[in-house]
């Protein structure tokens, strides 16, 4: 055995066995619940309400999915969520890029003031100004509107910082020489900074989309009209079986599981295609600098 490569120094067999066993346990404890959801969502009503360990189909059925679209009318909250999250995320990416660009200007008058004005907002946790946010939205007539869902939380200090970090990796001299050549600020921003910072834009886009798709507190505060429910609100109404809100009698288990699957699909698609952006952004969020 070559000792030079540290990876060559392995554990002995019993240690490796314990390692695999533990890892298998952690894997199963994560995997089994999710697998159970998939199986139950595609079982018949009868099977899904029977007790027992449901890890394989008795009989495969799509009636849970048919139920949620026919009876629960899930298309509406799904499209609401999709619309609100997409529009808000696109605007957020643009505005974060703007703000990031402002923050890297070296000879900007009042820059210090501007920087602290933006950074201070990061210290104001949105969830703790909840009641005032509710009142403000009431004053602006944004309760029960899509606009309300879109504009609240439209910019976050985190995404601004992320864009700023990407922009600082662009050599400032590049912008300076373009300026000397007479390029407009809009061109410098659009043709030098944005193309180089595509991974940053993607990271902000995917992270914020996930955050908005999953958002519970904001819609729970702003929305009472069931036509404007987003997926999390709808799912909650179904789970808590609140007849006054879901307007229906008890939702069958397979339909609830189907709703869980449907809420998850967009995120899984994002995870598959944008894994590296998500992971890099989330690791960045927890680094100290």
């Amino acid at each position: 055995m070559r000792k030079k490569n540290p990876l060559e120094n392995r554990m002995n067999l019993p240690q490796r066995a314990v390692c695999w066993l533990l890892l298998g346990f952690f894997f199963l404890i994560m995997f089994i619940p999710m697998w159970n959801v998939i199986v139950v969502s595609t079982s018949t009503v009868l099977d899904s309400s029977a007790s027992g360990i449901k890890l394989w189909w008795n009989s495969f059925s799509t009636e849970g999915y048919e139920y949620v679209f026919r009876v629960t009318k899930l298309a509406r909250p799904f499209l609401n969520s999709l619309y609100v999250s997409t529009v808000a995320t696109v605007i957020q990416v643009v505005l974060s890029a703007f703000a990031g660009y402002v923050l890297i200007q070296k000879e900007l008058p009042f820059k210090k003031g501007i920087t602290s004005f933006i950074m201070l907002t990061m210290m104001i946790p949105g969830d703790l100004t909840l009641i005032s946010v509710y009142q403000m939205n009431k004053q602006l007539h944004l309760l029960n509107t899509y606009t309300g869902l879109i504009v609240n939380g439209l910019i976050s200090g985190f995404s601004i910082l992320l864009m700023r970090n990407y922009f600082t990796s662009v050599p400032y001299s590049l912008a300076e020489s373009a300026r000397l050549d007479g390029a407009s600020e809009l061109r410098i921003f659009g043709q030098i900074y944005l193309p180089i910072s595509k991974p940053g834009l993607a990271t902000v886009f995917f992270l914020e989309f996930v955050g908005k798709w999953n958002s519970i507190m904001l819609p729970a505060t702003l929305i009472t009209d069931q036509d404007k429910f987003t997926m999390p609100l709808m799912l909650r109404a179904m789970i808590l079986n609140d007849a006054s809100q879901s307007g229906a009698a008890q939702t069958p288990n397979n339909a609830i599981m189907a709703t869980i699957v449907i809420s998850t699909v967009p995120l899984l698609i994002i995870y598959v295609f944008a894994q590296r952006f998500l992971l890099s952004g989330m690791t960045l969020g927890a680094s100290k600098e």
């Binding site: 999953n214 997926m231 179904m238 869980i260 809420s263």
Partner: peptide
């Protein structure tokens, strides 16, 4: 990655 509505519901 999932919302609390999904994880909680599950």
């Amino acid at each position: 990655l999932l919302s609390w509505s999904v994880v909680g519901g599950l």
